[in-house]
Amino acid sequence: MKLQDCFSASYAQARRRFLDAAADAGLQVESKIHPERGRDGEELAMDVARDGAPDATALLVLSSACHGVEGYCGSGVQVAALQDAAWREQARRGGVAVLYVHALNPYGFSHIRRTTQENVDLNRNFHDFSKPLPRNPGYAQLHGLMFPDHWPPSAQNEAELQRWVEQHGAAAYQAAISSGQHEFPDGMYYGGLGPTWSNRTLREVLRAHARTARRIGWIDFHTGLGPSGLGERIYAGPDDAAEVARARRWWDGDGRTPVTSIYDGSSTSSKLTGMMWACVPDECPDAEYTGIAMEYGTQPLQQVLQAVRAEHWLAQHPEASPELAASIKRQMLEAFYTDTPEWQQRIWEQAREAMGQAVEGLGG
């Protein structure tokens, strides 16, 4: 396996490589076709490949591109995993079927956005929408400051934003911006007012492939938080001490890479609402679920948040010049993907370790 050939320079190339890798592994792919087209007019899809018995009681889900642009990393891991004969044999020996869900959010992947075509952050969209949605008063205070009439922001705009941060603190700023909000449809980290296409389609996939499983593990690949190249294993599940403890038994290993949690403040992530893991107990109520988000660092947090801010501004201003648009998209891609062999190698090594630990946990 040549690792650099597993990572791609576009969604279209990533999809071709995933489909080819699945075919070379002898796996059939089920393609859930997206209603929109990609940035170059290409077909978009959530592609699903299953490696293992259809009635396996232990299932490991490996998913990419929950946040669109982050699929540049996650897709590379999935392609590498499909080409790793030793890894596939380890899962088979452990009696664990592996479900590869490629491009949960293909629209964002192709268009270099974190969001879906509805401008929704998929990992803030898994709510019971018949009930009142969480409020985020901090974001309501910031929204008007985040998107000035012109880009880049003026010195006055940046100074006003900095005053808010100084008054409330950097942690409060991160939480207000990123925890999720439902009042501003054109804003950042918008959770939506109903299930997105990606939400509904993922639930279909789980109903088709995970209902027979009695134990489900899930590694969802993300980027954008933490030191460059370091994979933080963020617990992805309910605030339940026993379930957190099980995730830590699986993935803590020798303690070098502890499982962090948004519930106890140990994670680089703020506490979030509407997270994707919530669909598992909905669709697979009889299964024991254990999951993490594998969060790889790229750039300093404020630089990443500024890139997301700029990209949202661009979506609100389609009249922006082609040169400015290209610059913002380049900034956005670099905030969530580091295109170097060294970074890719670190990503794969940590993913490979976590995948092996998950198989051992599911087989235990």
Rank of each mutant, 00 (worst) to 15 (best):
M1K: 04
L3P: 07
C6Q: 08
F7W: 12
F7L: 07
A14Q: 13
R16Q: 13
D20T: 15
A21T: 06
G26H: 11
L27H: 12
E30P: 00
E30R: 14
R37G: 06
R39N: 12
D40P: 00
A45L: 12
A53W: 03
V61H: 04
C66K: 00
V69F: 09
G71Q: 11
V77D: 08
A85W: 09
A86P: 00
R88W: 07
L99T: 06
A103R: 04
L104I: 12
G108D: 14
H127S: 03
L133G: 11
N136T: 08
P137V: 06
A140V: 06
Q141A: 15
L145I: 05
W151N: 05
P153N: 02
G169W: 01
A170K: 13
H182N: 11
P185A: 08
M188I: 15
G194R: 15
R203S: 13
H209V: 10
A210F: 06
I216R: 09
W218S: 15
I219K: 15
L225N: 02
P227K: 10
P227C: 13
E232T: 05
D240W: 03
V244G: 07
A247G: 11
D254Q: 00
T257G: 00
T257E: 13
P258I: 11
S266W: 09
L272P: 04
T273I: 04
A287W: 07
Y289G: 02
G291E: 08
I292C: 08
M294V: 01
E295W: 08
Y296P: 05
L301Y: 10
Q302L: 07
L305Q: 03
E311Q: 12
W313V: 00
L314F: 07
S327D: 11
S327P: 00
Q344V: 13
Q345A: 03
I347D: 04
E353W: 05
G356I: 03
A358E: 06
A358P: 03
L362V: 14
